[in-house]
């Protein structure tokens, strides 16, 4: 099964420029998924770099790479949840994630995500991210829950 961008928009509440997946190339719902994120120089994270900074400053932010992987995990999980359980996915914990090398504009990042467990409404995922044959990141464990919008607003 493959999911195009329109289907990702239907599944995830994230929107431009925070919807950080382009396509899901393969998914076994509730088990594993491979998702693609293309880094481009016209993403807003590149808008504020001062003129004349060297090439290494164009590394894709680690925060957005982790978010992109997390959205892959969210898609995998949401596909296996019964419909009608509305709410926002909240990233609640991460453990042992290693960033091995940076990504740059033009790179195509492939996230290989496994859904390890779903316990009491909390999902645990792990996996890795690749550019070609190079592993760029490892994710030991990422934990997320889905919370209704009004519950999040009340917790603040």
């Amino acid at each position: 099964m493959r999911l195009e961008h329109a289907e990702l928009r239907a599944l995830l509440p994230h929107r431009y420029p925070m919807l950080l997946l382009d396509r899901v190339e393969a998914v076994e719902p509730g088990v594993s998924l491979e998702a693609v994120k293309t880094v481009t120089g016209c993403e807003p994270c590149y808008r504020g770099i001062a003129e004349g900074e060297p090439a290494d400053r164009y590394a894709y932010p680690a925060s957005l790479l982790i978010e992109s992987f997390g959205q892959g995990a969210a898609v995998l999980w949401l596909l296996s949840r019964r419909p009608g359980t509305a709410g926002l996915p909240m990233f609640t914990a991460a453990r042992e994630c290693v960033l091995l090398r940076p990504a740059y504009p033009g790179d195509v990042i492939r996230h290989r995500v496994r859904l390890d467990q779903v316990v009491d409404g909390a999902a645990f995922a792990s996996g890795s991210s690749w550019i070609g044959d190079d592993k760029v990141a490892e994710f030991g464990s990422m934990m997320a829950v889905v919370r209704p919008v009004d519950a999040i607003a009340r917790a603040s």
Partner: peptide
Amino acid sequence: DVYLGGHFPQLTVYPGVFTLETLR
């Protein structure tokens, strides 16, 4: 903020990864 507009349109929530960005 442009990114926060997409996270989420119905309710602005500072993403966990932005807390990491703040730390970075």
